[in-house]
């Protein structure tokens, strides 16, 4: 149940990010100055923390998506769904441990 709830929440969050992302990227067609101004506002520590949340959501959604594919297509998938959920959590922690310190050093050293 909780894997599904998290999958929904991260899915909707990623959708809204992509919506904004397409809009701000499309701005370059309007005027490069406007694009630079908008992208410039992203270079703040608050946005840097937001990026940690974004990457966290995407990493969970990606790993759990693979788990759901295995549940649907691997004949033993439903039997090992709980174990696979713990693997997803473990992979998420490992990925975030690798990403977060490196990213935050970049964000706060500017």
């Amino acid at each position: 149940m909780w894997s599904w709830v998290l999958h929904r929440i991260t899915g909707v969050a990623i959708f809204f990010f992509l919506l904004v992302h397409i809009l701000d990227t499309a701005l370059v067609r309007v005027s490069p100055e406007a694009y630079n101004a908008v992208i410039g506002t992203y270079q703040t520590p608050i946005m840097g923390l937001g990026e940690v949340a974004l990457v966290g959501a995407i990493v969970f959604h990606a790993f759990n998506g693979l788990r759901i594919i295995l549940i649907d297509f691997w004949s033993k998938g439903t039997r090992y769904q709980k174990a696979m959920f713990y693997v997803v959590i473990a992979l998420w922690v490992i990925t975030m441990l690798g990403f977060t310190p490196r990213h935050l050093i970049n964000v706060f050293s500017h």
């Binding site: 149940m1 759901i68 439903t78 769904q81």
Partner: peptide, 14 residues
């Protein structure tokens, strides 16, 4: 595949 049904089944059906 939320698995709520499997957890709820009083007969232990997968």
């Amino acid at each position: 595949t939320t698995f709520n049904c499997t957890d709820a089944c009083p007969r232990g059906i997968q």
